[in-house]
Nucleic acid binder design. Structure first.
Lengths: 113, 113
DNA sequence: TTCGATACCTCGATGATCGAAATATACAGG
DNA sequence: CCTGTATATTTCGATCATCGAGGTATCGAA
């Protein structure tokens, strides 16, 4: 892999749910849009495959962290809009804390300032 | 899980190899010692289970990133000492870069200053 | 009408991590 | 001497998120 290439989340498995929740915290969005936003907001570094995203959304739905509603996209196509619930917001806070804690711990071991 | 509890690397799968290489970059160490060091250097945040550590060492051996040698531990017990190879050092640099890149990208999406 | 972009879903494969169990030894305390 | 604790390694099955690829469908532009 070349430096600068887009990467998947395999290296940091478990963070996709957090990223999705965060992306939805700015307002409802459909699956395709979520993937685009994550790509954009990460300066094209993060690539979220559909085979990862849709299962993730199913998980979040089952947990009650998001709701889903069929509607019409900006491009006039049938799309499913996901929205964050109150529990989802709480979960986002929890996962964010946990992530910071993990990264800080690893940074300590790795001596990353 | 309570805030402050030790955590496994499940959330950041793929970083264990990097942590092991980094730990060995200070000099040879046996498996048990590696786990202790990672725990200590992370202020008791990171817990490396044996069921994760030893397979990881096997991977690193196979890749030629570490060497292994039987010897005697500080406590006079039979132990296997692992040492970083030149390739291991290069790999450590690669993984460190990749990790920083990923964390930076995620931090951007998550709006973590 | 063809093509690219949008949009969703599903499937099997992969592979790292986990928890638990088994084994063994050194040493200290009672 | 006996027992428990810490040290030290290995192996096993289970879990589960991610991946890549494939399938379906629609819209609008060329």
């Amino acid at each position: 892999m070349e430096r600068g290439d887009p990467v998947t989340l395999d290296l940091l498995r478990g963070t996709l749910d957090m990223l999705v929740l965060k992306t939805l915290s700015r307002g409802p969005l459909h699956g395709y849009g979520i993937a685009q936003r994550i790509k954009q907001n990460s300066s094209d570094v993060l690539q979220v495959g559909e085979g990862s995203l849709y299962p993730a959304l199913q998980r979040l739905l089952l947990q009650g962290w998001v709701t889903a509603e069929w509607g019409t996209s900006e491009t006039n196509r049938r799309a499913r809009f996901y929205g964050l619930t109150k529990d989802g917001r709480r979960q986002l806070a929890r996962e964010t804390d946990e992530f910071r804690r993990m990264v800080a711990a690893i940074g300590q071991v790795m001596e990353l300032a």
